[in-house]
Design a protein around this nucleic acid. Structure first.
Length: 657
RNA sequence: GCGCCCUUAGCUCAGUUGGAUAGAGCGUCUGGCUACGAACCAGAAGGUCGGGAGUUCGAAUCUCUCAGGGCGCGCCA
């Protein structure tokens, strides 16, 4: 509703300015006054107009206020401060439509959106950095779906790269396991943990001799080649670890629709098709001399040289095809992204790979798949949730699309960039890491998969559940073991997801168990608790919060809304209603700025206002019946909106806490 | 060397397209459970928004510069 009124006000002001002043402002800035007593919206536009119209801002603002006339949903506009125009909404009308759950229609962008996230190398257990990626991506998917978009979720699997090759080397050459033994190990419940340690041991083993390092090249080559014993073993391992990743992420309510794999990009020759396009499109060109002799290179993204591509300086060249004819990572990524936009002219084979407990199927790429499958790819917009370190590679793909003339697609290609999760020095020390004097002064220490140094995702989730379980056990003796487990699980997921979402993307998270395991203050459980309290009020009152006030059956008249919201004592409660009206506005902002943290901040703030309200007003003992109904309507609306925002973050609410 | 990001309270972070008196959480201190559950609430203390210059009616926000920190820049992925 807030978003709806915001738009109406902006449109009205824009029309008025065009008609009366002949000015066309591209964007009407609308913000909120510092205090709600001053109104719900503030327009500083008179300051901007002062120069153009050569008149003092106060005078312009005065004229606009006097001349603009009534706007539906608004009580009045007024002049404030040095020239602000503040708008007051009709509180009673807004509250009544919120209580009745009247949703203004929203315009849905046509076309499908593809979100790629997680993309974890299938060679070891997922860690907390992967959780940040997956939670950001999954939350963004939910935000898009809330806004009415159709979204496909993909998780790209690099099953033919060096990281998988490394664990294969570990199994075959370091531990000298047979195929049967490896197969046995992949059936272990936590094979990903086994690989985590093995990967660290292999990395160390490489350092012991160059002979060892040669094994890596051999294995990698065999995997890329395909159709051999080594490739089969690599596939067995990567599929087993991938399955573990899906299970881990499912614990945090994260699901995927499709898992495109690099092995199919190679075997279905996606690159050949892309290579032809890039050559004829003049994006790639062959180097005949210099450092990159024999390679196919493209212009490096951001290269400021204006030289013709054929005579680019070496530092502005990005090698796509090596002199030995093999294609690098960026080349494969270009082919993959041409496929995403339906520009490649080839498709994957598809087969069902995984079935979530809720019945949702997850598909995987294959060379010859099942005849009946959903249609993936050919989308109009993509978001790639990939950490900030890969910005240059992402830009290279975008530049390649542009070079081929696909500007519209390039414009709808968003690198959803975020910073890494590191560890506080204290946390690193707890994990047994030897800190140098320099390390101790740092605010954070980077994790290293190669060294086996980091916090595994499942370990963190286990700790969160154990910690939540302790609290639940202490409070709810009467509940069954199963019920307590379920509640603890919801709290753990709420704490985890909120923790990963409260930081804005460019902020490095310095991870510490103490912060992550906290259930108090600015946390997911704080918000969940507010909903539980709201639910309890209705339960004790013998009413259903879901249907209270819905479908025109509002027990509060519009006059009563006016009576309770308009006087001075009503302002404090009005602030809560206003915050509750903002869900769609916040979702829109989060999507436009690709920043889920706004949704998290909003959920917390709304819960905070609610808890304050909860303390000030005792609802069930309220003697005035009309006022009691009004307070109940307030609780019902805030509860509903909290649940909706939490749902966008993938956080559910337990029945009790 | 080039490019991107960061620097706001003791600590961890918000501050949405430049706007009215810079905000949270944690921590510290004080107070509040015979109320709809205290995983909560109230109050106090705590700030040269890294330094400097500029643009503007107005700068934590934009530009330049200096300092400090991080990340990237491979015929790796």
């Amino acid at each position: 509703m807030y978003r709806h009124l915001h738009r109406r006000l902006a449109q009205h002001v824009r029309d008025f300015l065009r008609q009366n002043y002949g000015v066309d402002l591209p964007s009407i800035v609308i913000e909120q006054p510092p205090k709600v007593e001053m109104g719900e919206y503030a327009l500083p536009l008179a300051f901007e107009l002062a120069k153009r119209l050569r008149q003092p801002p106060r005078k312009i603002a005065e004229e606009i206020v006097a001349g603009i006339g009534p706007i539906e949903g608004f009580a009045k506009l007024e002049l404030a401060g040095a020239g602000y125009i503040n708008a007051r909404v009709n509180r009673a009308a807004l509250a009544a439509s919120l209580a009745a759950r009247e949703e203004p229609p929203r315009e849905v962008r046509p076309g499908k959106i593809l979100v790629e996230h997680s993309s974890i190398n299938p060679n070891k257990a997922a860690h907390i950095g992967h959780l940040r990626n997956a939670i950001l991506g999954d939350t963004f998917v939910r935000l898009l779906e809330y806004a009415g978009s159709q979204v496909d979720v993909q998780n790209y699997i690099d099953n033919t790269g060096v990281q998988v090759a490394d664990v294969v080397v570990g199994f075959l050459h370091l531990d000298k396991k047979s195929r049967a033994e490896i197969e046995q190990l992949t059936r272990q419940p936590r094979v990903d943990y086994y690989c985590w340690d093995l990967y660290a041991r292999v990395s160390e083993w490489y350092g012991e001799s160059n002979e060892n390092l040669k094994r890596r090249a051999e294995v990698l080559h065999a995997i890329e080649e395909g159709n051999n014993q080594t490739a089969a073993i690599a596939d067995m391992i990567s599929v087993a670890v991938l399955r573990r990743h899906l299970e881990t992420m499912d614990r945090a309510d994260i699901e995927y629709d499709f898992l495109p794999r690099e092995s199919e990009i190679l075997q279905l020759h996606f690159w050949d098709a892309a290579f032809e396009k890039l050559k004829t499109g003049g994006v790639l060109f062959h180097q005949t001399e210099g450092k990159n002799k024999g390679c196919w290179v493209m212009r490096r993204a951001g290269a400021n040289s204006t030289a013709e591509t054929a005579e680019l300086a070496e530092e502005d060249q990005k090698v796509i095809v090596r002199s030995n004819g093999t294609v690098g990572y960026v080349g494969k990524d270009i082919a993959y992204h041409l496929w995403k936009f339906g520009l490649l002219g080839r498709d994957f084979g598809y087969r069902k790979f995984y079935r979530y407990p809720n019945g949702h199927p997850c598909w995987i790429s294959t060379t010859d798949g099942e005849p009946d499958h959903p249609h993936f790819g050919e989308v109009s917009e993509i978001y790639n949730v990939i950490d900030a370190r890969q910005a240059e590679a992402q830009n290279a793909v975008i530049e390649a699309l542009r070079g081929l003339g696909y500007n519209q697609q390039a414009d709808h290609y968003t690198h959803f960039s975020y910073e890494m999760v590191a560890l506080t020095p204290r946390c690193a020390a707890e994990l047994g890491y030897q800190l140098s004097e320099e390390d101790k002064t740092r605010t954070y220490i980077e994790v290293s998969g190669r060294k086996g140094f980091g916090v595994k995702a499942d370990d963190l989730i286990d700790s969160l559940i154990a910690s939540a379980r302790k609290e639940v056990d202490a409070r709810h003796e009467q509940l069954s073991d199963r019920e307590r487990a379920s509640v603890a699980n919801q709290i753990a997921v709420g704490a985890l997801r909120y923790f990963m979402l409260k930081y804005t993307k460019p902020s490095v998270i310095a991870f510490d168990f103490k912060d992550a395991l906290s259930f108090e203050g600015e946390t997911g459980p704080y918000v969940q608790y507010a909903v539980v309290r709201a639910t309890n009020i209705f339960r004790k009152a013998g009413l259903d919060p879901e249907t209270f006030g819905k479908d025109g059956a509002c027990p509060v008249s519009i006059e009563d809304f006016g009576k309770f919201l308009n006087d001075d004592s009503g302002t404090e409660i009005w602030e809560l209603w206003l915050a509750a009206s903002k869900t769609s506005y916040i979702v829109e902002q989060s999507i436009a700025t690709t920043e889920p943290a706004y949704a998290a901040k909003h959920a917390f703030q709304l819960a905070q206002w609610f808890n304050n309200f909860y303390h000030r007003h005792h609802i069930l003992t309220e003697p005035d019946d009309a006022r009691k109904k009004f307070l109940l309507a307030t609780v019902a609306v805030v509860r509903r909106e909290l649940i909706r925002v939490l749902a966008c973050m993938g956080i559910s609410v337990p029945p009790v806490m």
